[in-house]
Nucleic acid binder design. Structure first.
Length: 829
RNA sequence: GCCGAAGUGGUGGAAUGGCAUACACGAUGGUCUCAAAAACCAUUAAGCGCAAGCUUGUGUGGGUUCGACUCCCACCUUCGGCACCA
């Protein structure tokens, strides 16, 4: 990098950053909600330093906010910090600072970085989730859920990360490992707090349809995660026992082919079924082994199917046949009823199991394309077909029989239709220090008591030793633990566990509207005016976690009537990652690109422009420092255009007639305004918007270049003025500092962001003479210059008399002559 | 295995039925300079040709169409999500 700069970005950028802040350009009075536009970026965890990959999120958001501002919206763009969490605590354990200190330090570093990017927010609304004025209301939400029976405590096998020494929600287990550190997750039998998100499963699924402006893949991922299945719960009679056995199936059409029943090893009836069995002792031993093994390895693939016969049978209600009951390791207790009817002929897993243990296979749905024979089947036939061996349903289409047999079951009271979801309740307690305390008190007399609202917040004590013991460190903070029961005033103890940080982040977008309120979490009326969020921007990694939790909490707050909407984010944009050397940027890989050096060498506007130009923002993109230099060169080119032209020189006089060249430039200017506007309104097509501005800049240079060679006089031309002004305005959301500087140098008074976005004139877009491609049999052969308004028969005459066309068409029979108006012609011979 | 996204020059990408490779990066040659940097100009998909030009070309194979990167069918590869969910 040479010392000579293409322009003085190091002076320009801080100057305008200060100017925008002094003018309070991004500060909003939320009481004024006319033409409101709520633009929100996912608030970050305060880590030590940001890299250019993080920058993409904030830069995109800043472009949207500035653009909407210029379109006349009252834009709210706030920022905050998701400040509770493990990394700060882990650092403290290693002997560093208190998590609170390091977190607040990191926040100020991040704010400095955001500032130097020229990314502006309404900082008066800053929300920091680890501060008591915020987590007081996180606790309040917990208590509301508790009041409604939607927060509850239960003993259960839960996911445990041995490295983080805490439990994890199902959503936080990725490929059997901890979402944060990757350590293989084990199971622990613990009493834990859950939020009853399953209560909202149907609405969370159904309302995805309302989210027309969300990326399809995010909605698909959520729908798969919720995992709805409709089927029938069959109520089986167990031979010789008064207990009944319930099995859930989505394939009731295969009921006549059920040849065994399989139970999860954890099933409540598993032990009881063995009673009276000679082999009881040995069998119970095997079941116990299955339970232990399956819990550890169930997340791993290709576990060999194992099972044992219990000696008992159920009666198939449709035909009275006895069906043996097995216990099998491939049945999950958590899903359905923990028991299935197994149909080996039509289910891959049951087929595998039946083959291993030599259980009968009975075909009840025939493949219309190639008839099935139970004895020779190599794999289960899972498709649709014609019903066979199914009594009165024979000959029926299997799809139709799903409905018919379900109706038959309900009529005969053999079972009932029901719906199952894969979604499980959200485990929210954590055995770690740096989180919001769960506002619960245990009283020996009154039991579990919620902390009264007037006693909130339950403050997280500062002086705590962070021993990673697997139990919350708060256990050793005696002053914290020992308290009085709010009901009987007797001695009592506090809940020592803290909340999952995803609880903190599931409602922060509501707090920004009235961030300073201390008697309520937010002002209902104003929140109802400003939300749902008009544009939410963040990473795809939150497709399920944060976005599902936020939707759940929003629906809950809607149901208790403290907000009037039940979906938080109207538009969602998920940006792609920035990759370096083929991998995600990370310290351990040593491929982190820091913005600091780049900003020092080229300025923030260059980093912004390149980040936006690198490719479609929803896709991953490979970072190249060379590419960033190209963006810098472009800004230099624009700068010289304004400076060399002495800016004011472009403020030309009205001219009555303009040259052909100027007319072309004017057309290009208006086409560019159209293109950029459509690219920003129709999606986030920053890369193509920028390239079209580059084209306009190139054209201006062409026009200036040719006029200086004496071919015309574009200097002092209003057309040129318009072109240059348009370039500056169209660029301003992307590169705000240089645009603001050029704007002022062009003699403008107000901030460029107070200036209305330009509009284009339709009549200027049209060309009088066009160059029309001519194809022969679909192959391009020549181009002909014609008048735009030419009539079809005249065009045909011109085309067919063209010598190049004649070379291809002579001696040939012309079958067809296709004219696509103003686009092309195709001659078929 | 299931669901989803994608596959275009040396590279990032553009074009969603009508001129494939816009815009940029890189490369090569040139102008300016004592020199360098910057800037500017030219060339840059492949093959054939002195040239005009011709042929081929958007993962593979088919199809629809006057015309296909774009639509349909089958397949291959890569990435992401889910995964013994009954």
């Amino acid at each position: 990098m040479n010392d000579e700069k293409l322009y003085q970005f190091n002076e320009i950028e801080p100057k305008w950053q200060k100017f925008w802040r002094d003018k309070r350009l991004f500060n909003v009075d939320t009481r004024n909600y006319k033409d409101k536009y709520y633009c929100l970026m996912m608030f970050p965890y305060p880590s030590a330093a940001l890299h250019v990959g993080h920058g993409r999120n904030y830069i995109i958001g800043d472009v949207v906010a500035r653009y909407k501002m210029m379109r006349g919206f009252n834009v709210l763009s706030p920022m905050g910090f998701d400040a509770f969490g493990l990394p700060a605590e882990n650092a403290a354990i290693k002997g560093g600072m208190h998590p609170k200190t390091s977190t607040l330090n990191n926040i100020s570093t991040m704010k400095r970085q955001l500032n130097q990017w020229g990314v502006e927010y309404d900082w008066d609304r800053e929300v920091i989730s680890c501060l008591p004025d915020y987590y007081k209301w996180t606790q309040w939400i917990f208590l509301k859920l508790y009041e409604k029976g939607l927060a509850y405590k239960k003993k259960a096998f839960v996911n445990w990360c041995p490295s983080c020494k805490t439990v994890l929600a199902n959503e936080q287990v990725v490929n059997g490992g901890c979402e944060r550190c990757g350590t293989e997750v084990t199971q622990k039998d613990l009493e834990q707090w859950f939020f009853r998100i399953t209560h909202y499963a149907e609405r969370l699924l159904k309302d995805l349809n309302k989210l027309s402006e969300w990326p399809e893949r995010v909605k698909t991922m959520q729908a798969n995660w919720i995992g709805k299945s409709e089927g029938v719960e069959i109520d089986f009679e167990i031979e010789g026992m008064k207990e009944r056995l319930k099995c859930f199936t989505t394939r009731i059409d295969t009921i006549y082919g059920a040849t065994f029943i399989a139970l999860a090893p954890e099933h409540v009836l598993a032990d009881k079924l063995m009673e009276g069995n000679k082999d009881k002792g040995r069998l119970l031993e095997i079941i116990k082994k299955m339970r232990d093994e399956s819990r550890v390895s169930r997340s791993q693939e290709d576990v060999e199917k194992e099972g044992i016969f219990t000696g008992r049978f159920v009666i198939n209600p449709v035909n009275g046949k006895k069906i043996p009951i097995w216990i099998a390791n491939y049945i999950l207790m958590e899903y359905g009823t923990g028991a299935i009817m197994a149909v080996p002929a039509h289910d891959t897993r049951d087929f595998e199991f039946a083959k291993k243990y030599d259980l009968p296979i009975e075909v009840v749905i025939d493949n219309p394309d190639s008839p099935l024979k139970a004895g020779t089947m190599k794999e289960a036939y899972v498709g649709e077909g014609v019903m066979v061996n199914s009594a009165q349903f024979n000959g029926m289409d299997s799809k139709e029989s799903v409905v018919k047999i379900a109706e038959f079951f309900e009529e005969k009271k053999f079972g009932k239709r029901c719906v199952q979801y894969k979604l499980r309740d959200w485990l929210i307690s954590r055995q770690r220090y740096w989180g919001a305390p769960i506002p619960i008190i245990y009283c020996p007399k009154c039991g579990i008591v919620g902390v009264p609202e007037k006693d909130l917040p339950v403050l997280l004590p500062d002086n705590v030793e962070f021993r990673p013991t697997g139990e919350s460190p708060l256990k050793y903070a005696k002053d914290f633990v020992n308290t009085k029961c709010p009901e009987c005033k007797g001695a009592a103890t506090r809940e020592i566990e803290t909340m999952d940080t995803f609880v903190d982040s599931s409602w922060y977008f509501l707090r920004y509207i009235t961030p300073k309120l201390n008697d309520r979490p937010f002002d209902t009326d104003l929140v109802n005016k400003w939300l749902p969020v008009d544009q939410y921007i963040g990473g795809i990694e939150h497709a399920i976690l944060h976005l599902l939790y936020s939707r759940f909490i929003t629906k809950f707050l809607h149901d208790i009537e403290v907000i009037g909407f039940d979906e938080p984010f109207r538009n969602l944009f998920t940006q792609g990652m920035i990759i370096k050397d083929g991998a995600k940027m990370s310290k351990s890989k040593g491929n982190v690109v820091s913005p600091d050096g780049l900003i020092k060498d080229y300025g923030a506007d260059t980093v912004r422009l390149y980040t936006l130009f690198i490719g479609p923002p929803e896709k991953d993109a490979e970072w190249s420092d060379r590419g960033a230099e190209g963006a810098y060169r472009f800004l230099g080119r624009v700068w010289r255009l304004v400076e060399k032209g002495q800016a004011a020189k472009f403020m030309g006089q009205e001219k009555t007639n303009i040259s052909k060249e100027e007319e072309g430039l004017r057309r290009k200017t208006h086409q560019t305004i159209k293109k950029v506007t459509e690219d920003l309104d129709g999606g986030f097509h920053f890369n193509t918007a920028i390239s079209s501005i580059m084209e306009l800049v190139n054209e201006v240079y062409d026009v200036i270049g040719s006029s200086s060679r004496g071919h015309g006089s574009a200097d002092n031309s209003p057309v040129l003025t318009e072109a240059v002004e348009s370039i500056v305005i169209l660029l301003s959301p992307f590169v705000p500092h240089i645009a603001e500087e050029m704007w002022q140098r062009m003699g403008k008074q107000n901030s460029i962001f107070k200036c209305p976005w330009p509009s284009y004139e339709k009549s200027f877009l049209l060309e009088k003479v066009i160059i029309l491609p001519v194809q022969v049999n679909g192959k391009l052969r020549t181009r002909i210059e014609i008048d735009a308004g030419i009539k079809e028969d005249e065009l045909k005459k011109i085309v067919l008399s063209d010598p190049k066309v004649l070379a291809w068409t002579k001696d040939k029979n012309i079958k067809d002559f296709i004219i696509v108006p103003k686009k092309l012609v195709n001659i078929v011979i």
